[in-house]
Design a binder for these strands. Structure first.
Lengths: 130, 130, 130, 130
DNA sequence: GTGGTCTAGACCACT
DNA sequence: GTGGTCTAGACCACC
C-alpha cells in the first residue's frame, strides 16, 4: 500500500470524490495522523494534473465534514477527530448494506458465500493495516 | 409488499434507473413471472407522471440486458431467463461488496456487527418471499 | 426442411416480412411451384395465430412484387415468373454485400475466412435443394 | 475518403445508428485512433443539424460497447480497445452472412460472381486503408 | 465548456 | 393500441 494519490479519469465517480475517498482511506490506514499536513491544493493539482478548483472542492468538503482543518496561509491538516468522523460516516452506510444484502438473497446468492466474503475482507483489511 | 411502481424524485438516482431496479425487484420477488406483460410505456408514464421517453429508456435497457423482450405493437414481456440474467448482474457486484467491507473494517466497525446484518437481511428476504 | 410456416414473435423483423421471406424461400427451394396455391389468408392467420391484416399485408406485398397473383374468390397462387422476380430482388442486394465485405476486411477478418464461408454456404444450399 | 460525418435522412436506418456506424468506420480506417477526442455532443449536433439527444444516444451506445469512453465535463475519447471491440462485433455478423449467401445460392446467383465481389471488396478496402 | 437526464410532444411502423 | 425514433429545449453536476 502506498500513500500517493491517484485519480481514475475514466471512473464514473467524480474526481473530487475520489480525492476525498483517498484522504479518508489514508487516515483510516494510519498513513495520515491527526496534525499531519496534507499536500497543498496547488501542489496536488499539479501532481494529479487537475484543475485547482477540483482539489479545492475536495478539501472544502473534507473540512465541512470535520475531517481536516485549514489554516489560511499555512495549509490543511488532519483533524484530531478525523477517524471518529469517518467512522460515523461509514456507519451511516450500514442500512444500505442491509438493502444490498437482501437483494443478494433474493437473487439466489447463498448466505455462506456472503459470510466468506465478510471473513476475507476483514482478514485482508487487518493485514493491510500492518 | 406491493407491486405498484414508485419513483423518488429526490433521489440522486436517475428515474429510469429506479424503474429498472423496481422491475428487477418484482421479478426476483416473483411478482412478475416469465411471459408476464409489463405496463405499456404510455400507461406507466401516465401512472408515474413521467415523460414516455423516460419509461421507454428504462424498458430499452431492460431489453438490452435480456430481462424483458419487446414485441413492437404488442408490448413488453418478462423474458424466460430474466431471473438468471438478474442474478448474474448481482453476482458481478460482489467484488464491490468486498471493497466496502474492507472499508468498514478499517473504520473500526466490528465484524460481528456485519455478520448480524447479514443474518437479518437473509431472514428478512426469505420472509418477503413468502 | 419442411414447408410449414413459422413466425418468431420476438424477432426484430416485422411479422409480415417474415411471411414474405418464407414464401419466397419455399419458392426458391422448389417447395412451391408456379401455379401452386398458397394457404388462404384466413387459414394462415389462424394457423400462425396472427391478425388477418398481417397476413393480408404480406400477400399484398408479394402480389405487388409479382411473386404471386390472386384470383378473388379462389385464392392466391405462385406466379410463373416468381423465381425470376425473387432472383432479381436478391441480385439487388449484392451492392450491400460488397459494403459489408469491405467492413469485414477493415475489421481484420481474413479473406480466406470469408471464402470458406462462401463455399460452405453454396454447398449447404445445394444439399437442401435435394 | 474524408472523416466528416454525414447523415442520410432518407435512410430507414435510425440516425443514431448511422452515427455509430460512422464512428466505428473511422476507427477501423485509422482516422480515429485510441485517445483521440470525438466532436462534442453539442458541436456534432450543430454540424449535422440534429438534436443533441440524438448524438448523445449514439455516444452512449458507443460507450456501452466499449468503443469510446467519456469523461463527464471533458469529452468523449476513443477507447484503447476500440478496434478489438468493433472487430468482435463484426465477427458476430458472420453467421448472418452465411444465411445470406445460402439465399443467393438458392436464387441462382453463381458462386463465381460472389467470389469476384469478395475479391473486389478486399482490394477496395486495402486501398482505402492507405 | 462538457456530458447526463428529463419533459413535452410529434411522427412512424406494426398489431 | 404498442413500441421506436426524433426534435426542441431545459436543468444539473462536473471540469
Amino acid at each position: 500500500m502506498n500513500n500517493t494519490y491517484q485519480i481514475d479519469n475514466q471512473s464514473r465517480k467524480a474526481v473530487y470524490e475520489q480525492i476525498i475517498e483517498q484522504v479518508e482511506r489514508f487516515i483510516l490506514a494510519g498513513l495520515l495522523k491527526p496534525g499531519d499536513q496534507l499536500p497543498s491544493v496547488r501542489s496536488l493539482s499539479i501532481e494529479l494534473n487537475l484543475n485547482p478548483n477540483t482539489v479545492q472542492r475536495a478539501y472544502s468538503e473534507l473540512e465541512r465534514r470535520g475531517v481536516i482543518y485549514t489554516i489560511t496561509g499555512k495549509g490543511s491538516f488532519v483533524d484530531e477527530k478525523a477517524r471518529e468522523v469517518i467512522s460515523s460516516e461509514k456507519r451511516r452506510e450500514l442500512p444500505q448494506l442491509f438493502e444490498t444484502l437482501k437483494e443478494f438473497s433474493a437473487a439466489g446468492i447463498e448466505k455462506q458465500e456472503i459470510l466468506d466474503i465478510v471473513n476475507y475482507a476483514y482478514m485482508a483489511s487487518k493485514e493491510e493495516q500492518d
